[in-house]
């Protein structure tokens, strides 16, 4: 994947994740690094709803190995997780 197409995909993933979160959690403004699991923002179903959303929209399957709060704690973390899971990696830097 070229760096430009990687950036495009990452932008789409970020927007999709952000839109889902804004429609699911009780917060007016969401910054990319805001902690989603901070007290009072989400209910007890949120974690599995987010999991189901990611599986459905990005056609991925989450399992035991993906259970790491670092994967889901923020918009940035979730976006990076989806990019890794999809195998959408940045191109290797060439020799300078």
């Amino acid at each position: 994947m070229t760096n430009s197409s990687h950036a495009e995909e990452e932008k789409k993933v970020r927007e999709t994740v952000t839109n889902f979160l804004l429609s699911s959690i009780n917060i007016a403004n969401l910054n990319d690094d805001d902690n989603l699991f901070a007290s009072g923002i989400v209910n007890s179903l949120f974690a599995v709803q987010l999991m189901t959303f990611l599986e459905k929209i990005f056609v991925i399957e989450l399992g035991m190995d993906d259970l790491d709060i670092e994967n889901f704690k923020s918009v940035n973390a979730t976006t990076a997780f989806v990019m890794r899971k999809k195998g959408w990696q940045k191109a290797e830097a060439g020799p300078s």
Partner: peptide, 18 residues
């Protein structure tokens, strides 16, 4: 041990309860 520590109530129980 099922899953990982820290996820039993947020991820494992909700699937069963669902």
């Amino acid at each position: 041990v099922v899953g990982k520590p820290g996820f039993a109530l947020s991820h494992i129980a909700p699937v069963g309860l669902h």
